[in-house]
């Protein structure tokens, strides 16, 4: 079984791939391809948020003793900053507005990438340290990402 942090990091890359495909399609005006790639991207991102918030963060906070104001709380707050951007992209897709779609997309991309970097360099090593041996959590996280 792969390490948890590695699994989560790979999932970031998967989200990136679908984001790029959606953006490229919007740029070309191919709205069918865009809708397909974007929907996949959005569902992946939301599943990723859920796995972290529901499966990983609560036991991490419990076992590490980190409570309010720690990295998991910061990551939750950043998830909340990204959700409205996804909604704005939903709207832009519905209106087939390529300008709004790619501009909001770029905003989300930068937000998401700096968020991912913090997770990959700080949070995931912590997760591997505290939860790495827990096969149940690992299996539930993998199921959540692939669900």
């Amino acid at each position: 079984m792969a390490k948890l942090g590695e699994t989560m990091e790979k999932h970031h890359k998967k989200c990136d791939e679908d984001f790029a495909a959606a953006e490229e399609a919007a740029h070309k005006g191919d709205w069918d391809a865009c809708a397909k790639a974007y929907t996949k991207f959005r569902d992946e991102v939301l599943a990723h948020f859920s796995v972290e918030e529901d499966i990983l963060f609560p036991p991490l906070e419990e076992r590490s003793g980190i409570t309010s104001g720690g990295p998991p709380q910061m990551m939750r707050e950043e998830h909340e900053q990204m959700r409205p951007l996804l909604q704005q992209m939903d709207n832009a897709l519905e209106q087939k507005n390529a300008g709004n779609f790619t501009a909001t997309g770029e905003t989300l991309l930068v937000m998401m990438q700096q968020h991912n970097m913090k997770e990959e360099n700080i949070l995931y090593p912590m997760i591997d340290h505290h939860l790495g041996d827990d096969r149940d959590i690992t299996a539930r996280a993998e199921a959540g990402l692939n669900g």
Partner: peptide
């Protein structure tokens, strides 16, 4: 542009659309 956006979206409130980084 990113810092502008990051600080602005703390000024607003849910439901208000903050100008994006290309603006």
């Amino acid at each position: 542009p990113f810092l502008n956006w990051l600080h602005l979206q703390k000024t607003g409130k849910p439901g208000l659309v903050v100008p994006n980084i290309r603006d």
